[in-house]
């Protein structure tokens, strides 16, 4: 079994994994960081989105060994201690979640979307969420949450 090492939420981690272990499995089973979810088998739903070297990535679509040496941020690493990320606060403030299952991936995607966009309007946010499925909210309050957080993050 190959040994894989990476930095997850600022901590150096290392483990022996099968070569076919998915990054999401490594995060959930080895690191017990269960905030990253698995909602499909085909890389469509986005419940598993984490940041790999600052880019959002579907962790069900990467092998753990592909993340060798990478800097990973999961939902558990987004807040600074008790100080929630503006995107997290905004989802609560704008009722951007219901059952919460897609939420962690949705927030991680949204942070990356805002970080990489100069100007986000309703249409570009909706387009940017193409890779994340929510069955509860009808997306309206997710869009609202991202708009509000974007303002906060720019400030």
């Amino acid at each position: 079994m190959p040994t894989v090492s990476m930095t997850v939420n600022g901590k150096q981690v290392s483990a022996d994994v099968s070569s076919n272990t998915l990054l999401v499995t490594f995060i959930r089973e080895n690191l017990k960081l269960t905030g990253t979810h698995v909602g499909c088998d085909t890389s469509q739903c986005g419940a598993c989105v984490v940041h790999v070297n600052g880019n959002s990535a579907k962790s069900c679509t990467m092998l753990a060994v592909q993340a060798e040496g990478a800097e990973i941020t999961t939902i558990e690493g987004l807040a600074k201690g008790n100080d929630l990320h503006p995107m997290q606060k905004s989802f609560q403030e704008n009722h951007g979640l219901q059952c919460g299952f897609c939420t962690t991936g949705m927030i991680m995607s949204a942070v990356d979307l805002v970080n990489k966009s100069d100007k986000l309007d309703d249409a570009s946010i909706r387009e940017g969420l193409e890779g994340n499925i929510c069955r509860c909210t009808g997306y309206q309050n997710i869009v609202k949450s991202i708009q509000a957080a974007a303002k906060e993050m720019e400030a």
Partner: peptide, 13 residues
């Protein structure tokens, strides 16, 4: 919401 937005929801899996 708090537990869901910080990744501390406790779903079955």
């Amino acid at each position: 919401d708090k537990r869901f937005i910080i990744g501390k929801g406790r779903y079955l899996d």
